[in-house]
Design a protein around this nucleic acid. Sequence first.
DNA 1: GGCTCCATGTAAGGAGTTACATGATTCA
DNA 2: TGAATCATGTAACTCCTTACATGGAGCC
Lengths: 186, 186
Amino acid sequence: MGSTAMTIGMTELEHCTLAAISEHQPCSAYDVRQVFARSPTPDWSGSTGAIYPVIKRLAGRELIEIEAEAKGPRGRRNLSITPQGAAALRAWIIGIEPWMAKASPDPIRTRVSFLDQLKSHDERIEFLKAARKLTEGMIQELVPEVESYRSLSTPEYLAGRGAIAQLEARRVWLCELADFYSNDGR
Amino acid sequence: MGSTAMTIGMTELEHCTLAAISEHQPCSAYDVRQVFARSPTPDWSGSTGAIYPVIKRLAGRELIEIEAEAKGPRGRRNLSITPQGAAALRAWIIGIEPWMAKASPDPIRTRVSFLDQLKSHDERIEFLKAARKLTEGMIQELVPEVESYRSLSTPEYLAGRGAIAQLEARRVWLCELADFYSNDGR
DNA sequence: GGCTCCATGTAAGGAGTTACATGATTCA
DNA sequence: TGAATCATGTAACTCCTTACATGGAGCC
């Protein structure tokens, strides 16, 4: 199968763009940007400087087709996925690799790993409290947003639940840390 | 306090480097690289192309001091943190912001959000099984590695527990997803 | 006529990566 | 003396970001 070879050297963003086009076709690059920007857990900004070059590269690999509505340099372009594109997309989803299972970087966890650089247990407990508050705030923001996807898109909803699970795990962990340092770090 | 101003425009990597120097001083840039590379949850490769420029910038801001052991262009340089550096480090740790609490990007979760692009429930269940296996493998790798930090460094150990908690949350979530699709996605 | 969205694109810059280049030290 | 490890550094590249530039369509 050529589908894996097709995928070599392609980034996550390129594949996500391909996936978004597949789901919403026929759609414009602008639509794709909206999808990324409005996602409850946006990994990318959906910036023009990224999307339009990506679209070009996908078209160059013949994974998508671009059809101009009007002649002329401006105006909406309708994007659709090709059979090769659909194959590459499935291959990308299925082609899961060990590195993808790694714990993803977390700025709060990073700071925790340097917690002994603070002066006192009080400072540490203060930090942990602030971190927990922020995490709880994020959960409260995310839950209704994800819930709004419940009837809209099952996979997006389920992915959102995964994001919430990640945050919930951090919340619990931060509580345990606070307990630990409250008991004078024994 | 100038400590926050000192920190403006500095990246996570720059701050982590500062923190690593603070913990291991006097140490070399090479030592810092080892710390990053050998960390149980390496967010950065510790590549030379990143570290040495970072060291220069930190020295430029007078957050660290560089002392050459031998004269001449080659040979070990001993790094140590300055009082301003220590202040900036504490300010960075404490100065936690809302965006840091966001769910971090996860390639597996990304794929789940496009799961309806697969052809059948069987394919989806197969994917979820593979994802769970990889996550379980990563947990089994990580647990002993983190456990080895237990007596070495409390904060690093606790951060490692946080990484494991994240993976464990994903494992449970993937199990729930598999159940969902096994029940024909009702 | 001007405001707001829709829509496409380029330019410059930031922040890391890999690959390359160099040399010192240690030890068998 | 030769190999491994310690150690520093640069060059080229990747991939994304922000900021800028352009223009059409609907509508009040």
